[in-house]
Simulated assay, not measured.
Amino acid sequence: MQAATDPRQTGQITDTSLCHGWAGLLLTTERIAADAARLDLREALPALRDRLTAETQHHPAPEHAGLLTGPAGVLPTLHTLTTARPVDPEWETCLLLQPMKAM
């Protein structure tokens, strides 16, 4: 939980990337929250979404950016977590993340 909410830890995030940035923290936190009994993880999600959106607007992507380091990873993350009809979550398999399937 503290990795998503502690300013000392989130203050070390320097970009929006999927690999080690805000998109990765948001997607990982959302997937863990979906499978956890702890409500505090779900409560942290709106602030993480807002931060990712703000950071995306204020900091341009690096010139040589790809899926893990640029908008190619940020955009699917935002789309997956904010639309009524998200993209197929299978794209997350390369990150070893995948939403739980209903049994």
Rank of each mutant, 00 (worst) to 15 (best):
D40F: 02
A36D: 11
A4F: 06
H20M: 12
T5K: 06
L27D: 00
T14A: 13
R8L: 12
T10F: 08
D40E: 15
S17N: 07
L27F: 02
G24I: 10
T29W: 07
T28C: 12
D6E: 13
W22S: 04
R31T: 11
T29Y: 01
R42P: 00
H20I: 08
H20Q: 10
D15R: 02
Q12G: 06
T10L: 07
A23K: 04
D40K: 01
E30N: 09
A34Q: 12
L26Q: 11
G24H: 04
A23D: 02
T14K: 14
Q9I: 15
G24M: 02
D15I: 07
A47D: 12
G11M: 09
D40P: 07
A33L: 07
R42N: 08
P7Y: 10
T29R: 00
T14E: 15
E30H: 15
P7W: 10
G11F: 08
A36F: 11
P7G: 04
S17A: 13
G21L: 08
R42W: 07
R8I: 02
A4H: 05
Q12V: 04
A23R: 00
T16R: 13
A23C: 11
C19S: 15
T29K: 01
G11N: 03
T14F: 06
L39E: 15
L39P: 11
W22V: 05
A37S: 14
W22Q: 02
T28W: 06
T14I: 09
Q9T: 10
R42L: 07
D40A: 04
Q12N: 06
A37H: 09
T5S: 10
T28K: 12
A36V: 02
E30S: 13
Q9D: 08
